[in-house]
Design a protein around this nucleic acid. Structure first.
Length: 454
RNA sequence: GUGGUUGUAGCUCAGUCGGUUAGAGCGCUGGAUUGUGGUUCCAGAGGUCGUGGGUUCGAUUCCCAUCAUCCACCCCA
């Protein structure tokens, strides 16, 4: 049989030990911050019922869902004729489960399902992979990890403030220079209302969102394509024109512009409340009111966030916002939640590119015993046990092969100390300890080694 | 879904204006050094030149298709 070429599906990856150490550093850092703010962990299954997922992420999102083929003779239950059927329609008949697309919607399902077992406001964090049938490219994978924090059951802007603080802490600890962009869906709605374009809200936000990518001319032609009138476009550009002003100036501009829009003013007030908290709170990361920030996920209803790296162009590293009615479809009305999601894989890419991973996290095994043979093994094993009892990561080479090979192994694994115990050392009751970095070698008693390593 | 890039050794890549034996560096294995890695020297293994078809006396090279890959758009973490 011809050997098959080993490969993983498009957009998925293996992680080597050296990569896992760094990934875990990111996860541990994020988790630590989440816990510091009082969030508790949960997990949900990789797959959800398709009915849970469909329709929550917009038309585009539905297309990007990975669907799982029903088990058994799935075609026998298909009622419609296979000929000329729209594939989307067929899919719903042969697939009733899908891989989760994000962690927020499963969380909403989770909250409603476990209503009696949780206490509100419910603060949870969740770090798990999600899957999207997107075309992979730079910073985009088909399987990637999200690190979500959400509070559900509280309308207070204090939650938004806390999330900004969490973002600030995480990126500070990870040594990434970032900018937090904040906006509010109510403001966008208010603008659309004010310029009489409520019916074209989606087109309006999409065009606005693209400003930094396609420039103002690009936005203008997009708006024309969507059927906006000259005067409407002028109004949109009055919003774009305040882009370089500071947060306070933007707010006073909005208050004037949205004077007749109740919802718009509500949005401005929310943003102002959040920003006001930071007049007395220290923040390392820049917090910018970005009126062109829109975000595609259409369940957001209030504040929206996005975090970008200042040094690497890779799309957003973190995003989120407030959703007033995510649990509504699952039967729980009038419960508001707010949350954000860190993209661990993109954070990894940025940190790798910037070379900001701490050097000391690569160490794993501290000590390796060279294997000289059966007699020596029996002599070393109890010592090894004692090292481990003392919390020192240690191992013995499992075979008594050529020393060169054992040393190469230790070297490749970056093990800082190698211990040689042969006939001589056993007779003298000492250990020959080699420092792999300096190459120095010295004989010492076991107790001294313990002291040296702990 | 749309447009483009690239597929040659385990990895990173060179090369062949179509010709007999396809190269380098790194890595790997062995030796110099039978109790010493990372440096040095010597030797060796490893390729159906992505896959299928076409043109040709002859294709890794030219043409077509296909798959994979990466990048951009769309959208997003």
């Amino acid at each position: 049989m011809a050997a098959q070429k080993p490969s993983v599906p498009k957009g998925t990856r293996d992680f080597l030990p050296s990569e896992m150490v760094k990934r875990n550093f990111i996860f541990d850092t994020i988790k630590e911050v989440f816990k510091r703010f009082g969030y508790l962990p949960i997990e949900t299954p990789s797959m959800e019922n398709l009915s849970t997922l469909l329709g929550k992420y917009g038309e585009e999102g539905d297309k990007l869902l990975f669907k799982i083929l029903n088990s058994g003779d799935y075609l026998s239950k298909v009622k419609t004729s296979l000929i000329g059927v729209e594939s989307g329609k067929l899919a719903s008949e042969i697939s009733e489960k899908g891989l989760r697309y994000d962690l927020t919607v499963p969380f909403a399902r989770f909250v409603v399902q476990h209503l009696n077992e949780i206490t509100f406001p419910f603060k949870r964090y969740q770090i798990q992979p999600v899957w999207r049938a997107d075309r992979p490219q730079k910073g985009r994978y088909r399987e990637f990890y999200q690190c979500d924090v959400d509070v559900i059951g509280s309308n207070s802007m204090l939650n938004e403030v806390e999330l900004v603080q969490i973002i600030d802490q995480v990126f500070q600890k990870l040594n990434i220079n970032a900018v937090i962009k904040i906006n509010n869906r109510k403001i966008l709605l208010g603008i659309a209302e004010t310029i009489n374009a409520k019916d074209k809200f989606i087109e309006f936000t999409i065009a606005l969102d693209k400003l930094d990518k396609i420039g103002s001319d690009g936005v203008r032609s997009e708006l024309i394509k969507s059927g906006f009138s000259e005067s409407q476009i002028e109004d949109v550009f009055s919003v774009i024109n305040v882009i370089d002003q500071n947060n306070k100036q933007k707010i006073s501009f909005l208050k004037r512009m949205l004077i007749d829009s109740e919802i718009g003013l509500k949005g401005v007030e929310e943003v102002e409340t959040i920003l006001n908290y930071f007049e007395t709170l220290s923040l390392n990361t820049e917090l910018e009111l970005d009126l062109t920030l829109a975000r595609g996920l259409n369940y957001y209803t209030g504040a929206i966030f996005e975090v970008q790296s200042k040094d690497v162009a890779i799309g957003s590293l973190c995003g989120g916002g407030r959703y007033d009615d995510l649990t509504g479809v699952f039967g729980l009305k009038d419960v508001s939640g707010v949350g954000i999601s860190f993209g661990a894989d993109r954070i990894y890419d940025v940190m790798e590119q910037l070379d900001v991973f701490p050097k000391e996290i690569v160490a794993s095994t501290k000590v390796m015993f060279v294997n000289f043979g059966e007699k020596e093994e029996k002599y070393c094993l109890p010592l090894l046990q004692k090292l481990r009892e003392n919390g020192i990561n240690s191992e013995i080479y499992p075979e008594s092969v050529k020393m060169k090979k054992q040393m190469t192994y230790a070297n490749n694994k970056n093990i800082p100390f190698v211990i040689l115990v042969g006939e001589n050392e056993m007779g003298k009751g000492v250990l020959n300890v080699k420092d792999m970095q300096s190459g120095d070698q010295s004989e010492m008693k076991f107790e001294k080694l313990l002291q040296k390593l702990s």
